[in-house]
Design a protein around this nucleic acid. Sequence first.
DNA 1: CAAAAAAATTAAACTGGTTGAAGAAATTAT
DNA 2: ATAATTTCTTCAACCAGTTTAATTTTTTTG
Lengths: 193, 193
Amino acid sequence: MGDELILENIERYIHLEKEEVNLLYSLLTPRTLKKKSFLLRQGEICKTENFITKGCLRMYSIDEGGFEHIVMFGVEGWWVSDLFSFFTGTASEYYIDALEDTELLQISKPDLERLYEQVPKFERFFRILLQNAFVAQQRRINQNLSFTAEQRYLDFIKKYPQLEQRIPQKQVAAYLGFTPVFLSMLRKKLSRQ
Amino acid sequence: MGDELILENIERYIHLEKEEVNLLYSLLTPRTLKKKSFLLRQGEICKTENFITKGCLRMYSIDEGGFEHIVMFGVEGWWVSDLFSFFTGTASEYYIDALEDTELLQISKPDLERLYEQVPKFERFFRILLQNAFVAQQRRINQNLSFTAEQRYLDFIKKYPQLEQRIPQKQVAAYLGFTPVFLSMLRKKLSRQ
DNA sequence: CAAAAAAATTAAACTGGTTGAAGAAATTAT
DNA sequence: ATAATTTCTTCAACCAGTTTAATTTTTTTG
């Protein structure tokens, strides 16, 4: 199951005793999500933090014109949720759905707070997780500002070569911030040179 | 001094006892930075987390063409540093300099770790700080993807009305991701309608 | 496995934002 | 104060990426 994956993931940053592992497991709820089904819709409150043990999710918004813009992907070993909605208890602006059949481990806010209280080390773990996510986002902001579309695409396939194979091109375009038509032209141009 | 400002800031999220406050103060080093002088340059390692008690900083990169792109501003009450460089001890890709004469309170990595150990509540404080920063960045990424230049500018002046008054227009443009020339045209167009 | 639906390609016209250049206004330094 | 420097404005030519629409390829579904 995904139990080993999440443990391996956590023990990269903090060491856990047996009982602490058991407490953690007792607070996690497994869930499966069929391809194309939703984990969260705009207007709903995000009630859980979600660790992916199998499959692939995307978190995205839909603009006035009906276009989708992907703020993050998640695959095995990643946490995905709308933290703003989760922490503030307010309606989310985002959708999260499954690009493949997906398996999750979920933890609710009260359970997470219980976990922090009983094992303060988890506070440290989630701080480190957040640090990494923050830094990755900052990098993305900087690249969106300073790179051309072509540079951004090349960086994407270099950074996430697996993902590029796994998901439809139009999703890559929706993440990088240009149209599927333009991505197709770009790929053709790159393959010629 | 800035001592009250930082305390007020921290006590929004965690409560501190007198000795804990004293420990904190003993680990903070004040520093002043003249306008246009650098707190960090590309290639250097970011050694401190910096709390601004007065003034204004920007963190930015310079691209191949020599253009500056601002990843964040900071004013009174904000923390500014290159967290990636700070945590990993690797060379920074960013510059941080002062847009005004600025006063800071600095904490080094060893001192921050001492603080975490002796007062674990600070782990919580910085996790919450990071949560907020993460969510703000995610919002910015989403808006960069889904908004036009005009919408982004209008959102900026709505969200940071003080900052817009305080800094040169070209810095706003470097933050929003377009040229100063275009911003000037945009403002003219908006003032006509 | 066939039919339907979704994704990818191609091409041409188009547009939001850039570039370069030159002058005016504001800020900074002496 | 005055000169020097930086910032802001204006305009016109230009280009990176969009749009629309038609065709082909791939994936999904019954």
